[in-house]
């Protein structure tokens, strides 16, 4: 399973390296989302307060584009059929695709974080850096697992371009909420009362626990369910 996962992840990252999809399309898309939110909100104190939520919203929108791309390359010339016929371990395919997706999301998030700090005048409290890293790791894992699972579900469906966001967005809502709350604790912002220096870093850790459970549940579900999903695709 792990050998297959490494093969598939290397293949997907190789395709990304050649096509530069993240660099040329997803990054500008995510950056534009941040800029448009800044224009729409138009007040520094508001954008600084909602920066964590906007960061994860831009990440979630970008996830949809990335998932569609990662399965489009499998269906474009019948590679998905060949993968099925080749008897490649579906759990390995699932983990490999999730790993490659997570790697792309990490790059995207690192650049988005810089964008949030620059455009939204946000800052991370030094004591919150560990919280940001752990939150980003777990939220990215959860997004990659659930994105790969639902991408596989929609891969063979008619109208999959519109079906995928409909399926995916409600399911990733817990990640969006949990990661936003954890980032708020790390950034020192919260709710409707403006910037509150009094928000404790420790307020973020329970949300991290929820993100860990989410990632574990969807990781396990994907390993078990991806084979039957591929058969139906």
């Amino acid at each position: 399973m792990w050998r297959t996962a490494r093969l598939v992840a290397a293949k997907d990252l190789g395709i990304e390296w050649r096509s530069r999809q993240v660099t040329n399309q997803v990054l500008p898309f995510a950056g534009l989302t941040l800029v448009l939110f800044a224009f729409a909100l138009d007040r520094d104190e508001i954008t600084a307060r909602v920066a964590p939520g906007l960061f994860w919203l831009a990440t979630t929108f970008s996830l949809i584009v990335l998932v569609q791309r990662t399965f489009a390359v499998e269906t474009a010339d019948g590679a998905l059929d060949t993968l099925r016929v080749a008897g490649v371990d579906p759990a390995g395919i699932y983990l490999g695709k999730a790993l490659a997706l997570a790697a792309q999301l990490v790059v995207l998030e690192a650049l988005l974080l810089v964008g949030v700090i620059v455009f939204y005048a946000s800052h991370i409290r030094p004591a919150g850096i560990v919280l940001v890293i752990v939150t980003a790791f777990l939220a990215t894992s959860g997004l990659a697992f659930v994105g790969t699972l639902y991408g596989g579900l929609a891969a063979g469906a008619k109208g999959r371009e519109t079906l995928l966001p409909l399926l995916l967005l409600p399911v990733v809502a817990p990640v969006l909420i949990g990661a936003t709350r954890a980032f708020e604790a790390a950034f020192g912002t919260r709710g409707g009362e403006g910037i509150r220096a009094g928000v404790e870093i420790s307020d973020g850790w329970p949300w991290v626990g929820m993100l860990a459970i989410f990632a574990a549940v969807f990781g396990a579900a994907g390993v078990l369910a991806f084979g039957p999903l591929l058969e139906e695709a």
């Binding site: 093969l7 010339d77 019948g78």
Partner: peptide
């Protein structure tokens, strides 16, 4: 069965962004 079956259908099952060698290496490695 699938570990020992090779199907060449109407489509080729290739990844357009990968080179010829990378495609053959990937499918061979599987």
């Amino acid at each position: 069965i699938r570990q020992h079956v090779g199907l060449l259908g109407h489509q080729n099952g290739l990844y357009a962004d990968l080179s010829v060698r990378e495609n053959v290496r990937f499918w061979g490695r599987t």
